[in-house]
């Protein structure tokens, strides 16, 4: 299988922020969610992938083209959407559709009409009168109807009401049917990305905390409730992300949980009461906390 995105050791320094040797790989046909708090470096990473920012060091390859040198070739089959996407206020959606169609031979007009109806977007109204949600959906329509092989979406669901968000996610699911189409999308909200993503990359303070397929994440992490008296130092391990005590009960968040973990805890004098799965959001927070502690 070929990779549609390859970033190797990509670094970029700003006065108050730096992107620290980012490695990222997205195989063809997969959907990856890029998750991080505001200011984690998500947008900078996506902008480097679009050739909008040149990295200080490292290599970037998109759809087999080296960036930023070959960005024109790479962009032909990439659809990029970000919050600051500008549309012409004094033109209507039909005008925009004709405009984009004139540049991209891959434009699918029937699909564009279907999307306009599904998103509830009027074709003949100037965009000046569109709400924020309508503008976001219009920008997405204009790139989805090109049917690009790779979609790079910066916070596509931020600021949308729940109904609009579910409409957008439902249309993204359409991409799943084709094994040659791939998506990289960012969000500060794990709920938005977890349902459709094959893999998740957690970004924090300009570093990749973890990048793995979603089933592995959910299988590896566990919240373990134990009874006993123990000094947190005795449990020190790179797998321990959180230690909290409430009376005689101890709450642990553990990475790389497996069959031998319970025996290890018992050997430390703890009695395991309950082992619970964790949500992706809890796993993300545990990752951030562990990253800070190290």
């Amino acid at each position: 299988m070929t990779d549609v995105i390859q970033m190797r050791g990509v670094a970029k320094s700003y006065q108050n922020f730096q992107l620290d040797h980012i490695d990222l790989t997205l195989p063809a046909g997969e959907i990856m969610g890029l998750v991080g708090v505001n200011g984690a470096g998500k947008s900078t990473t996506l902008r480097i992938l679009m050739g909008l920012i040149a990295p200080d060091s490292g290599s970037v390859n998109v759809l087999g083209h080296s960036l930023p040198e070959q960005q024109v070739e790479a962009k032909r089959d990439v659809g990029f959407a970000s919050e600051d996407m500008r549309l012409y206020k004094h033109k209507n959606l039909a005008w925009h559709m004709n405009f984009v169609q004139s540049f991209f031979p891959s434009w699918d007009n029937r699909y564009a009409q279907h999307l306009a109806q599904k998103f509830g977007l009027p074709l003949d109204q100037n965009l000046k009168g569109f709400s924020h949600g309508q503008r976001v959906k219009a920008a997405l329509l204009l790139l989805l109807a090109r049917r690009p092989g790779l979609l790079i979406l910066d916070e596509p669901t931020t600021g949308l009401d729940p109904v609009a968000r579910s409409e957008v996610l439902e249309e993204l699911a359409e991409v799943l049917e084709n094994e040659n189409r791939s998506v990289l999308f960012s969000s500060h909200n794990t709920h938005d990305v977890e349902q459709l993503s094959d893999s998740i990359t957690f970004l924090h303070d300009g570093r990749v905390l973890a990048s793995e397929d979603i089933e592995s994440f959910l299988e590896k992490w566990r919240c373990v409730r134990c009874k006993g008296d123990i000094d947190p130092q005795a449990l020190q391990s790179s797998n321990l992300a959180e230690f909290r005590r409430s009376g005689s009960l101890i709450n642990l968040k553990l990475d790389n949980y497996n069959d031998s973990t319970a025996a290890w805890l018992q050997s430390k004098g703890l009695e395991v009461v309950e082992v619970l799965r964790m949500t992706l959001e809890e796993i993300f927070i545990a990752n951030v906390k562990r990253g800070r502690a190290q």
């Binding site: 996610l169 799943l176 349902q195 089933e215």
Partner: peptide, 17 residues
Amino acid sequence: IRELAAATKVSVITVKR
């Protein structure tokens, strides 16, 4: 797997599993 994933709006890897 891809058809069911798209129709159910859930990731390919989850249906595969």
